[in-house]
């Protein structure tokens, strides 16, 4: 490519534009980080952009961590993520393995049946009634079992299983391996990247999930983290947290509590994000291109 002065100006302009875009995208998140460490009194009266914490105070964090709900939320969310991902991968792998075998009786029918769920669903109210009917409401399982099989993942995994050479499985079969052995000793180890990516996607989905929990679960001690966050951030119930403070301070601390809560819920994501980010990039390609 040319490297004339006009070209260099174009490049500079593109660089500046992208830099501006990064700032616009990340500033809201930076603002939250800085505000969470600021002293409550200063943040309330502050106007304009925030480029560093105003004063320094951990008061908000102390109040957030003094609330048992945050620990309960973390515990429940961890359970949902760990058990949910494990179950999802197991179920999806089992289903994908069977459906990826050629010439097995009824497989076409089952495949159509599974695919159809991607196009049509009964809707929210009937699902609620089924979950209630089998007695899963007010259990953490209500956020796991109904979503244990994701049709799209099943199809993607099936495609990936199909690409494994038949000869590998045949030789294993001649050595006397049954289907479970073939699945767990040959097929899964060979498809590990796909499984890892799917597990990560699913984990993020579970970590961020709140909607079905809010419908299926009424007991406070079973709320996942996101529902607790919703109460603090959107339904604005910071009162119970800051009730120890005097009336004037209550308003001020309430403001920083929001920021601190966001931080407490986001830090785990921020910590693992740089390491897993590239897997997600791979995942997009699996989903979008190979299909």
């Amino acid at each position: 490519m040319k490297n004339g002065p006009a070209d260099r100006i174009t490049l500079l302009a593109i660089n500046l534009m992208l830099l501006a875009l990064v700032i616009v995208t990340l500033y809201p998140i930076l603002h939250v980080i800085f505000a969470s460490f600021s002293s409550p009194a200063e943040i309330v009266s502050h106007r304009g952009l925030l480029w560093k914490p105003l004063g320094f105070s951990l008061e908000a964090y102390k109040l957030v961590f003094a609330d048992p709900r945050i620990y309960i939320g973390y515990r429940n969310t961890l359970f949902i993520v760990v058990v949910g991902v494990a179950l999802n991968l197991l179920m999806t792998a089992l289903g994908a393995y069977v459906l990826s075998r050629k010439n097995v009786m009824w497989n076409k029918f089952f495949m159509i049946m599974v695919t159809f769920t991607m196009f049509f669903s009964g809707g929210l109210v009937p699902l609620y009634l089924v979950v209630k009917g089998v007695g899963l409401t007010n259990t953490l399982w209500s956020t796991i079992l109904p979503f244990a099989i994701s049709t799209f993942n099943l199809i993607v995994m099936r495609t990936s299983f199909q690409s494994i050479p038949d000869s590998l499985e045949e030789s294993a079969k001649i050595d006397g391996a049954n289907h479970l052995v073939i699945l767990f000793r040959i097929v899964i180890p060979l498809s590990l990247p796909v499984l890892a990516v799917m597990g990560l996607y699913y984990a993020v989905e579970k970590w961020n999930g709140w909607f079905y929990a809010s419908i299926f679960i009424q007991q406070q001690e079973l709320f996942p983290l996101q529902i607790y966050l919703r109460e603090i951030l959107i339904l604005s119930s910071t009162d119970s947290l800051s009730s120890g403070a005097a009336v004037g301070e209550q308003f001020q601390i309430g403001a920083t509590i929001k920021y601190a809560t966001i931080m407490v819920a986001t830090v785990p994501i921020l910590c693992v994000y740089p390491f897993i980010q590239r897997f997600f990039v791979k995942g997009v390609m699996i989903g979008a291109l190979k299909g």
């Binding site: 089992l94 669903s121 009964g122 009937p126 009634l129 089924v130 099989i149």
Partner: peptide, 25 residues
Amino acid sequence: WPLHFMLIPGLFLVLLFSYVPMAGI
């Protein structure tokens, strides 16, 4: 049969949580 057996758990979940609600319409 081992293959069909392996499909049962997934099939059960799909039937219960995807197809039963469809009847609910």
